[in-house]
Design a binder for these strands. Structure first.
Lengths: 339, 339
DNA sequence: GTACGGAACCAAATCGATTTGGACAAGACT
DNA sequence: AGTCTTGTCCAAATCGATTTGGTTCCGTAC
């Protein structure tokens, strides 16, 4: 169909300029020694021919593509046709892309490359960014095995010996949420967590149980898959409130669960925040637009993404660009669902 | 530094299996004829060596990388450190990435590749997706020139002769918004538009002016750069309401302008929606969380992205995958800012 | 006058695959 | 017996750059 109007190559430029391809290459890379006059001539010939180096060919030799891969783990488990409710990851991805561009890299969104259906191009990336790896994450296994640089946001909970991860201090944030509820008078706090075995769920649950133990409380934990969304939240609410000694506050790690719990609790005739207070662990459309709006943790994915990209690129380029200041844990946004 | 533990190549596999590289290649690509026994042997040797084809090398010959580039035009003008308020594009990008993966492609987010600072890898992509190209868009110029397949969402308003674009029917939606305001009793509708010269701003303004003409109304148009955000909206509100004959409804093409107009109008002592009705042209965090929440057009970027990716991939693969059903224009979400 | 050194340049190897154009053997057909 | 297929397989060219290991020329030092 299309007129194979192939782009000019380095050889075309060399021929027109009356030099060797080596010289053309040196002219652009600045590596060898090229006389100024020659350099000028090559430059102008290249420009007049409309020459652009072929990134793929260059990458074959130099082994650097200029692309970072971003793996959004929870997207692999969420219903892929419904990106609603995954605010966090979209905000993260957008910010990471902008940060990568600032450093001359492209950002590629890929699904798990250890699965065969994933785009083959994923494996050609120079470095990987992984959000919330799961326990014994096969991707981390593979990257460690092949020596591909990577950085994970949140740690593979089961893996001891790697240091390429960003600590978002889930335990600290969990403590803050619980303290906020305590300060507002809650005495029986329950937790609704997801099933993905990542440091987010596991860390929060562990911190919660530790806290409950110090307070001499029973741990009230309802677990529902992330994919169940609001329905899962409603379901969890029933489990928690059917008990003889129902909670007076619920901390839901995902925004959609929080919205479901809120709706169900009100259907059961309870007042929020009067009878029950609710906090969401990940701020999203669902927590903001609920009635009343749900107090929740804004994980500040934009900031997290910039930090992650900067660190990864520093490692790749062996450079030392300044990392954006600010802590990596979230910020509690107080809304109508707590007192 | 790192132990150059180079991955096994096709030659290693060939040697271990006692065949030629041609045969190994054929085994995986399924192109030539390879005896079943040989194929099995090659497969098992490859697996035991941990062989994976090198995407870059493959791409050098085949000229296909398996990556789509996504250019979010308005991101080039927006303050890049503030992805807030660009809901639309993040939702679009996320959905496009998932759709691309479904078809075996990666999605790379890139900035304008006609500018030199952009990642070089951008140019290696198989096809481009461009949201809201601007007038005389240099990127489209370049892609047409080099024969790179692309699809734009919204048309380059100044270019007649290309057909690779998705019509989001800005004119239709503008008409619906105006009719909605009319139905609610508005008689003097103003328009607040942005400065990016894309089909979104230009199409809406043209449709608005045409509508005003048929109603015998003065066209009341305030233009403010997209980058000005809420402040620009406040400013536009002053311009519109300082006139002797102020509007009783304002249609703002961007969510942030709408939020600014709303805030300023109320500061001026007017009631919304009593004295003034407001509609936003692009639903976002700002329109949803305003007080009162602002009626606006949900452009349904998730759907748009899926359609765009499907069409582009069909073109690249010369395939005929079904395009997700549903129209491409937005959906009016009525909230408290209109009656 | 010879040896040495640096500046400027180049031919060929290389990266890891795909693809072209056969080679060779075994069986089928005249 | 000779020719044709057909099924398998391979050597070498190719993609477009980078990099290695030179060569050539000229000026300077001894």
């Amino acid at each position: 169909m299309t007129e194979k109007r192939s782009r000019p190559t380095i050889a075309d430029v060399a021929r027109h300029a009356g030099v060797s391809t080596t010289t053309v290459s040196h002219t652009f890379s600045g590596k060898g020694v090229v006389a100024t006059a020659t350099r000028e001539r090559v430059r102008s010939v290249a420009k007049s021919l409309g020459y652009r180096p072929d990134v793929v060919a260059r990458s074959l030799r130099s082994n650097r593509l200029g692309v970072l891969a971003l793996v959004l783990r929870p997207l692999d488990t969420l219903d892929s046709s419904l990106p609603e409710g995954v605010d966090y990851f979209l905000r993260f991805a957008g910010s990471a892309a902008l940060a990568a561009m600032d450093f001359g890299y492209g950002l590629m969104l890929v699904s798990d490359p250890t699965r065969d259906e994933s785009p083959a191009a994923a494996l050609a990336c120079d470095g990987f960014l992984i959000t919330e790896p799961v326990t014994h994450d096969p991707l981390i296994e593979m990257l460690l095995g092949e020596g591909v640089p990577f950085l994970s946001v949140g740690k593979d909970p089961a893996r001891a010996a790697y240091d390429a991860w960003l600590d978002t201090d889930t335990e600290l944030m969990t403590g803050r949420v619980l303290r906020h509820l305590e300060d507002a008078g809650a005495t029986r706090v329950a937790l609704v967590a997801g099933t993905d075995p990542n440091s987010w769920n596991l860390g929060a649950e562990a911190a919660y149980r530790a806290w409950a133990a110090t307070r001499g409380q029973d741990a009230r934990v309802a677990i529902r898959p992330e994919t169940t969304g609001e329905a899962g939240g409603r379901d969890a609410a029933d489990e928690l409130f059917d008990r003889s000694d129902p909670p007076d506050a619920v901390y839901c790690l995902t925004g959609r669960h929080a919205a479901g719990v809120l709706a169900r609790v009100r259907e059961r005739g309870l007042d929020v925040p009067g009878d029950v207070q609710i906090v969401g662990g990940s701020d999203s459309e669902h927590t903001r637009s609920a009635v009343p709006p749900i107090t929740s943790v804004d994980l500040q994915p934009e900031h997290l993404a910039r930090v992650a990209v900067t660190l990864l690129v520093n490692r790749l380029d062996n450079s030392d660009r300044p990392v954006p200041p600010g802590h990596l844990h979230g910020r509690l946004v107080v809304r109508g669902s707590t007192r």
